[in-house]
Design a protein around this nucleic acid. Structure first.
Lengths: 123, 123
DNA sequence: CTAGGTGCTGGAGCATACTCCAGCTCAAGC
DNA sequence: GCTTGAGCTGGAGTATGCTCCAGCACCTAG
């Protein structure tokens, strides 16, 4: 796959793809005869996974660490599992906070609706 | 309340409190005889609320916008309610993504556990 | 009355995560 | 064969959200 195709498929900009390669999030892909990147198809799935770690708040340095472990193969299964278990706990904590804040938004919206109707009534 | 007390009570650094005041997130508090900030007690609740907006991903510029509306009083009830309703939808979207990623972490952890036990078995 | 602690201002600096640019190469269509 | 477009590299620049610092003022304890 050409870099433009990977960009379209993943929603990451071409610059971001090269940046991710530079910091070690994406393996340097083989090059074609003209020196252009020719990505394997499975990079799409990997980038989607990175996107999920990103969107759930895993910092870049940690994602890089995970990518490094992945490159080292079977010897790092345990380390990778432990990273994902730790991130799972982070997500659980955020979920609780999100749910609490969602409930708070509901309460606040109801309060504002009440205030608005009171405003209206004595215009 | 002194700035150091607000800092302790909220977990925000003194520098961050002054920074929040500078950008309009916190109302400039009255000063004591020596020109030092003397915060009203209710700033603690306001900062906690800002913290929840922050932790659920509301960007600074939006929080500043909300704070500005709040300063304008009853005339902005509707605008504030609409901001909170919009943020509520953002949170709902994040909740879904978090839940999906949590499930993904579970699946991945299980896969790694299987891989680890297989590794072990042919040592 | 002096030392130490707390607070003040204005402005510089920093970490994270990209984003953009100059100047170049290459391949393909007209 | 020449233009156009995609891609390349190295490095600079940007946005967000703080964080730190110099240099000074003030209050309190000993």
């Amino acid at each position: 796959m050409k870099i433009s195709e990977v960009s379209t498929a993943t929603g990451l900009s071409i610059d971001t793809l090269r940046f991710y390669e530079k910091i070690g999030l994406i393996d340097p892909p083989p090059r074609d005869g003209a020196g252009r990147r020719d990505y394997p198809d499975d990079v799409i799935g990997w980038i989607a996974f990175l996107g999920q770690l990103n969107a759930t708040g895993m910092p870049q340095a940690e994602r890089v660490r995970y990518a490094e472990l992945r490159r080292q193969g079977a010897a790092t299964y345990t380390a990778r599992r432990e990273m994902l278990e730790a991130h799972r706990e982070v997500i659980r904590g955020k979920l609780v906070l999100m749910q609490e804040t969602l409930a708070l938004m509901d309460r606040k919206v109801a309060i504002y609706q009440k205030l608005e109707s009171e405003e209206e009534s004595h215009v």
